[in-house]
Amino acid sequence: MEVRLRAVLADKELIRLYRQMVLSREFEDACAEQYTKGNITGFLHLYTGQEAVAVGATAALGRDDYILSAYREHAQAIVRGAEPRRVMAELFGKATGMCKGKGGSMHLFDPELSFMGGYAIVGGQLPIAVGLALSAVQRGENRITACFFGDGAVNQGTFHESLNWARLWELPVLFICENNFYGIGTEMHRSSALASIHKRTCGYDIPSEKVDGMDVIAVLRAIRHAADKVREEQRPYFVEAVTYRFRGHSMSDPAKYRSAAEHEMWKARDPIPSFAKRLIEEVIVTESELAEIRKECSEEVSEAVRFAEESPWPEDDEVYEDVYV
């Protein structure tokens, strides 16, 4: 039984979740288009289909809580409050980008938002999250650290080292595994002896749960509960969000390794229309209001693209900046 939406959040907040999912989707669609045009180059990993995870989780975290992620992190940054135009400019490699064009799609960062980075080495962000949690504890800051990673990361040494470490030192880390079943083209059953990821944490005595990552409200409730536990008990917690990416691993992947039936089955569970349906059923918004939101998001993204296009390239001298303090 699904919970009633109003039991979870106020109307305004519920609508905001919808808006954030739509904005994320629109942003990624625009990225795909700009990649095809050659304005975005390099690796480009889109989040399409997984929106409920970033949106639900971020809504459940505090403003000061640290967030770290992997390379599929545009939505996580935007939902956290990064301006779409500055993210888009970063993807274009422009001077006005979030990281002055030096990071690109995979390395978004903004300390003002406590968004502590996108990392492109699978599993690389986990130990860093543990260290941030340690610094918060030692400095007496009441913030937890939420660390996103994919199902592919669970076979890295850093995954096991970091879980053990966070539990051993009793650090407030919320591990969030976005299980979209694939690491590039390899399905999880072909890479993991135990495909039920959340069960792995028993080796480190870390409580865990699995949540439907296509349901933004389910994610929000699970992360709220998990974050409360982490904050109260000052200990790690683990959530596996089961989700699906609707596009290939990156723009160069046509995703031929997945059956049409599988894809269709997941498309039918698209987190955005299913949430819209609930909002309408519970008389929180009307279809025309939702259409208005979609239009606004689409305009915001078009404006972001325009901003990125019109922004200047970095100066050549910039290449030497920021190697050292």
């Binding site: 640290y66 502590m116 690389g124 986990l126 130990p127 860093i128 999250a129 543990v130 260290g131 941030l132 949690a133 340690l134 610094s135 918060a136 030692q138 400095r139 650290t145 850093t158 080292e161 970091s162 470490w165």
Partner: peptide
């Protein structure tokens, strides 16, 4: 992870 934790701690 000894180094990764130091990185995070330094960042924090």
């Amino acid at each position: 992870t000894i180094i990764g934790v130091a990185i995070g701690a330094a960042m924090g």
